[in-house]
Computed example of a mutant assay.
Amino acid sequence: MSAHPGDCCTTTQTDTQRRTILKSALGLAAFTAVSGLPWMMPELAEAAALTKEQRDAMTPDQIIASMKEGNERFRTGKPTPHDYLAQKRATVGGQYPAAMILSCIDSRAPAEIILDTGIGETFNGRVAGNISNDDLLGSMEFACALAGAKVVLVMGHTSCGAIKGAIDGAKLGNLTGLLDKIKPSVDATVFNGDRSSKNDLFVDAVATTNVRHTIEEIRRRSDVLAGLEKDGKIKIVGSMYHLVGGRVEFLS
């Protein structure tokens, strides 16, 4: 037995403190390796957002590959630690997004999160059924022709309510006209089986057709975007987000 009863408690406290300090140091080192700690070092805040030099150095294919890598991080639960305050500060003076994403308004399919991107990395247009219209086409032309984005990504998703509504011929105020734009994809979908909104396989098949149809509409109705793609300055691609599993499937 110790001649100094307080020695035991003192030793235990010291060991606990050492373990805490060690864990903190290891955690700090790991986080530094991943993120560069821009939140602790304001002078590095610009590194938190995509710069013009970084964006301009990438090809459309490299940007698409980066999107796929981001989705893999999201899908596996290993997203990049985002310092949104640093990204906000870094983009106050300008923005240099690499891509324009046209996706559905579905609350379960936020493109920025699904692709693990930060503030200033992508333009995002959202509308039920990820259709194109004059306003969205104008926005995409701004994103690519004026702001320098190199990829237009049309993203549909599984179990889409807008697709189901178009299949059912739903009528509701201004929504009726929107769903009318999806109906050609319903008719164009080749499918053997129950062609109803209760058949998930048919709904997803129509959603895929609708993505391809939107891409065709973009090329047909925007000489600006079609010209940029023809010159190899941008790529217009489609994808489907799978609610189950979280995978973004890029369409060929």
Rank of each mutant, 00 (worst) to 15 (best):
T11A: 13
L153F: 04
D15C: 03
M240S: 02
G77Q: 10
A145M: 09
T117L: 11
L179Y: 01
A47V: 06
G193N: 05
H157L: 03
V190C: 06
C104R: 05
R126W: 04
V244M: 02
L175M: 10
G70K: 07
K171T: 14
K198F: 00
K233A: 04
E216I: 08
G173C: 06
I63P: 03
V152D: 03
G165D: 11
T76W: 15
K164Y: 04
G232A: 10
R19I: 14
Q17W: 07
M155W: 14
P42E: 04
E69M: 10
E69V: 10
A143M: 02
Q62M: 15
G36H: 08
N192S: 14
E229A: 05
G232Q: 09
F31C: 07
L225R: 02
F250H: 12
T189E: 05
G6H: 14
T20E: 09
N199E: 06
R75E: 15
A33G: 13
E216T: 12
D168F: 02
K150G: 08
Q95I: 01
N199V: 00
D56F: 08
R89S: 01
R55I: 02
S252N: 12
Q62C: 11
V151C: 10
L146T: 14
T51D: 07
S197H: 11
K183H: 08
P184H: 07
K233M: 01
C8Y: 14
L137Q: 04
N130A: 01
T11K: 12
T91F: 02
V92W: 00
V190H: 11
A149L: 10
R247A: 10
A47L: 12
S252E: 10
E216V: 06
D106G: 02
V151F: 10
S132K: 02
S103P: 02
A25M: 04
L172K: 07
L44D: 00
L179G: 00
L102H: 02
G36I: 09
D180V: 05
V237D: 01
P5H: 11
G156I: 06
S159F: 06
N192A: 13
T11I: 13
R18H: 07
A33S: 15
N133F: 05
S185F: 01
C8K: 14
A49P: 07
N133R: 09
A86C: 15
L50C: 11
R75D: 11
I215P: 01
T51I: 04
D116W: 04
R55C: 00
D231L: 14
T91I: 10
P97Y: 15
G120W: 07
T209Q: 15
I236P: 00
G232L: 08
S139I: 05
E112F: 04
R195Q: 06
N174Y: 13
L225I: 01
L178I: 13
H242K: 12
T208Q: 11
V186K: 03
